[in-house]
Amino acid sequence: MPESKRRKRTTPATTQTSTAHANKPNPVWFKPVMFGLMIIGLLWIITFYISEGALPVAAWGSGNIVAGFGIAIIGFLMTTRWRS
């Protein structure tokens, strides 16, 4: 019966270099932008409801809700990339 080939063993040095890039912390601007987008999106929607559709962009109508949620969702998606 033929023998199967042996697998190459990975050394800790090779696995360390591939994970070293993934463990780098985020830039200083990342957290303020992330939280800022979430707050701006929330304020956009609140402004739309309080002004009864006149603000932030009257011509968009209910599209303002989509814009507000879109801005907030971008902020929430940034949380998946957040490393301390």
Rank of each mutant, 00 (worst) to 15 (best):
M1S: 09
P2I: 06
P2D: 14
K8D: 02
K8F: 02
K8M: 04
R9C: 02
R9P: 02
R9I: 07
P12A: 12
T15C: 07
Q16M: 10
T17W: 03
T17L: 14
T17D: 09
S18R: 14
S18N: 10
T19G: 01
T19W: 07
A20C: 02
P27C: 04
P27V: 02
V28N: 05
V28L: 08
V28D: 08
P32V: 04
V33R: 05
F35Y: 09
G36D: 09
L37H: 00
L37R: 00
L37M: 03
L37V: 01
M38A: 08
I40Q: 04
G41D: 02
L42R: 03
W44D: 11
W44H: 15
I45S: 09
I45A: 06
I46G: 09
T47E: 05
F48K: 01
F48Y: 15
Y49T: 11
I50A: 12
E52Y: 13
G53A: 05
G53L: 09
A54T: 07
A54D: 05
A54F: 04
L55F: 10
P56K: 13
A58R: 15
A58N: 12
A59G: 08
S62E: 14
G63C: 04
I65G: 09
V66L: 11
A67N: 13
G68D: 03
F69S: 11
A72S: 09
I73D: 04
I73Y: 08
I73H: 01
I73F: 03
I74P: 00
F76I: 11
F76E: 06
F76V: 09
L77F: 11
L77H: 10
M78F: 07
T80C: 03
T80S: 09
R81Y: 12
R81D: 04
W82M: 10
W82L: 06
R83L: 12
